[in-house]
Design a protein around this nucleic acid. Sequence first.
DNA 1: TCTGGGGTCCTAGGACCC
DNA 2: TCTGGGGTCCTAGGACCC
Length: 440
Amino acid sequence: MPFIPWAEAVYTFYMKAIVDCNSFYCSCERLFEPQLKTRPVVVLSNNDGCIISRSDEAKEIGVDMAGPYFKAKPLIAKHNVAAFSSNYHLYGDLSWRVMETLRTQLPPGCVEVYSVDEAFLNLEHIPLMQLSQAAMQLRETVEQWTGIAVSIGVAPTKVLSKIANRLAKKHKQATNCVLVLDTKRKTEQALQKTPIEDVWGIGYRHAVKLRGLGIETAYDLARQGPAWGSRFLGGVTGERLLRELNGMPSIEMEDPLVNKKMIATTRMFGSPVSRLCDIREAIATYTSRAAEKLRRQRGAASIISVFIVPKEDSHQTTFRHGPSISSYTSLPAATSITNELIKPAVSLADRLYEEGKLYKKAGVMLSGIVPDHSIQGNLFRPATDSNARMLMSMMDNINFAMRDDVLKFAASGTERNWKMRQDLRSPRYTTRWEELCQAK
DNA sequence: TCTGGGGTCCTAGGACCC
DNA sequence: TCTGGGGTCCTAGGACCC
């Protein structure tokens, strides 16, 4: 007895899609080095710590996702894998091109950028019978215009479209990277082929718990009711997930113009540091970066928090992220002026720092974010003078044009011996004149 | 001083995502 | 020796109020 008695029925809901760039960072690297087409490729996280993108060939030879780079090194050498440090200038620019291409192909407001390499699409304007062809066409256009290959999953809900997308990507030959779940029957089959941990919204913890309850596939999960989801998968989130799996849209498309509620800049140090002056420099630098992001969304922050992470004894067998030591302070008035943020940030760092300890990471977070034009005044402080604002916008403009922080506050330091390693970064082909690709 | 229910607001922390 | 960075949402529980 199928759990959906009307299994042959065609969906009558509006359909959604998720477009996902295939091995995005690797594809970006290959775009400018075509000779890599036949070589396995991996891209590393900041500090060349772990592997965050793998080409299909790299997956095939068994390079683990999110595995530490140093452990994979022997395998990488053996199979002549090309490894790159992350080049966010390049990926950011190519991401923008992919998203722009999608926007030209759809009515206004139908593209929701979900991450650097993914976008949800609202396809309600496309008749059901034409979905497959339209998706195929979209895939070809993106690849032709940007050089980036994408996969597209189409279904009535976001969760189901993610499931469709995963299968499209997994069976590239059979699906041509496009899978449309437009009937209950197709959906049911897709759910049966999806292990529980590959469902969007089920992480490691929940997967272990569900397997303990005898639930192995997305199909098993979908047979449970929303109330069950609420009980075992964390309240309303679980309830929504169950509805979505059963074809009932419960996670809406989001307004792409919504601003961030929290802005963070956090980094591992290139190597552990112990001096307070290094920590202060790092904190000042991260604060500057966070303030830049804040101004870009025309926001002002009223809470600033700082954390530092001590290095742990390294002789334990399983890796874990050590506890971070953090503190925050509420500002007398919301601000986006870098120096007004650096001061409290650095004094928070001073308070957290302990002489003689080694630290491996630090970070700054801005929250309590309000629109810049509606900053609540404070009777006891003079309003930020407009010179400071002009200075900020000049700095932003110059830094944007030149990149690489030509202008910065003295507190950010000049030596920066805490900076992260990026030994294998490719040129910033599309955003720096002096690093343009050369045709011979 | 003790007793009780019910409401709000805030924060810390968990879980998840890419 | 070497394991990323930047987000969101939700819940539980404490503090406080009537």
